[in-house]
Each structure stands twice: as structure tokens, then as C-alpha cells.
């Protein structure tokens, strides 16, 4: 699906294939349909920089991780194509936060969609959060979906476009101080 003849604006879906990581996929599809955007599905294999050159064993272990990730990516791409969306896959090795930001800096990325575990308190300090660091430094808007958010009904994504307009509203929060700065 690398038919990027002309650069089109793209949603960057960053996923780690965990539960919250996968939860964002239907949301991303929905938005891509409504906004007429392409999808780039990104997975970052977590490893120290230059890890591949360390030793043959490191290379091998990374290789198996990459293969697994590629399979998962392929599955998502297929799902996207079934929903009538154009999707690219991207597999990077490195530190997740940094790699996501690097991709996000390309000009055709409209916004980032990613899941977050939404940990608070002690867990938050211990684990840190990829989503958070992305959120703070991203050059574009970021949509985060928390693990506890009820999953979006997948089958209805293409059909019920107006389901969002029913009883539920899009909710805009206006941060007064933010406007003062402009």
C-alpha cells in the first residue's frame, strides 16, 4: 500500500499491540473515514539505540521481535483496507517516545492517535508514559484513548457516521489561558 504518489495528510497511529494500544484502532479508523485521511500505523520495538549492531545475538533477538510486530501490523493494515482506508505500516527500533516524535515531525502527519494505560499515583512514577512524553512534545495534536474507555463498535465504524451526533456530543473544552497567548 505504498502508493503515496502525492503526499496526503495522514493519521499516525502509534500502537504497542497491548490492550490500550489496540483500543485506539477503531477510533483512528472512524476519524480517518470522517476526515478523509490516510493512516500510518507505527510500532516501535523498544531497544537501546544502535542495539542491532551490538552483537549477532542481539540482532537475532530483535529479528524475532520484528517479525512478530510485522505480522501484527499486517493484520491492522488488512483491517484498515477492509474498511476502505489507505494505510501504511512503519516499524522502527528505538526508544518509543523519541521514534514517534521523529515520525510526527514529518509535515504530512495531521495528528497522532495513541492509547494510554492511564496510570496514576505510584504506577505513574514507576512506569512513566510514552503517551505523556509524546503529548508534551508533539508538533501536532494528539488523540489519546485510555484503557478503560469502552471500545468503539468496530463493525459500525463505516456505516453509522452519524452515531456521534446522536445523544452524545463532541465535547470541547476551552482553556481560557491558551487563547490569551495567541
Amino acid at each position: 500500500m505504498r502508493s503515496a504518489a502525492h503526499p496526503k495528510r495522514t493519521i499516525l497511529v502509534a500502537t504497542d499491540f497491548s490492550k490500550p494500544g489496540k483500543l485506539v484502532v477503531p477510533y483512528a479508523f472512524k476519524l480517518a473515514l470522517a476526515l478523509n485521511l490516510r493512516l500510518t500505523i507505527l510500532h516501535v520495538v523498544k531497544a537501546p539505540p544502535e542495539f542491532e549492531q551490538w552483537s549477532p545475538a542481539a540482532h537475532r533477538s530483535l529479528h524475532s521481535l520484528k517479525t512478530k510486530a510485522l505480522l501484527e501490523l499486517g493484520r491492522l493494515i488488512r483491517l484498515a483496507n477492509e474498511n476502505g482506508l489507505m494505510a501504511d505500516q512503519k516499524l522502527l527500533v528505538g526508544i518509543p517516545g523519541d521514534s514517534i516524535l521523529k515520525v510526527a515531525h514529518r509535515s504530512h502527519i495531521a495528528f497522532i492517535v495513541m492509547g494510554t494505560h492511564g496510570k496514576t499515583g505510584w504506577d505513574r512514577l514507576r512506569l512513566g508514559s510514552v503517551a505523556e512524553s509524546t503529548l508534551r512534545q508533539a508538533p501536532c495534536p494528539v488523540l489519546t484513548v485510555r484503557a478503560s474507555v469502552p471500545p468503539y463498535p468496530r463493525q459500525s465504524a463505516p456505516v453509522e457516521r452519524s452515531s456521534l451526533s446522536g445523544s452524545n456530543g463532541l465535547f470541547c473544552l476551552f482553556d481560557g489561558s491558551a487563547s490569551d497567548r495567541r
Binding site: L35, T116, G118, K119, L143, V149
Partner: peptide, 26 residues
């Protein structure tokens, strides 16, 4: 950040300094 961490629905965060934030579509 607190909203992102605790909200029960997806949160779309827009930073003030982002490049053309409303140019979202094709």
C-alpha cells in the same frame, strides 16, 4: 494532563504551538 489520565473518553489534545492544528483533513 490530568484530564488525559483520568477521562473516561478519548481526549484530543491540541498544543498552542502546534503547526497548523486545524488543517486536519484532506
Amino acid at each position: 494532563e490530568a484530564v488525559v489520565r483520568r477521562a473516561s473518553c478519548p481526549v484530543f489534545t491540541v498544543r498552542t504551538q502546534v503547526r497548523d492544528p486545524f488543517n486536519l483533513t484532506n
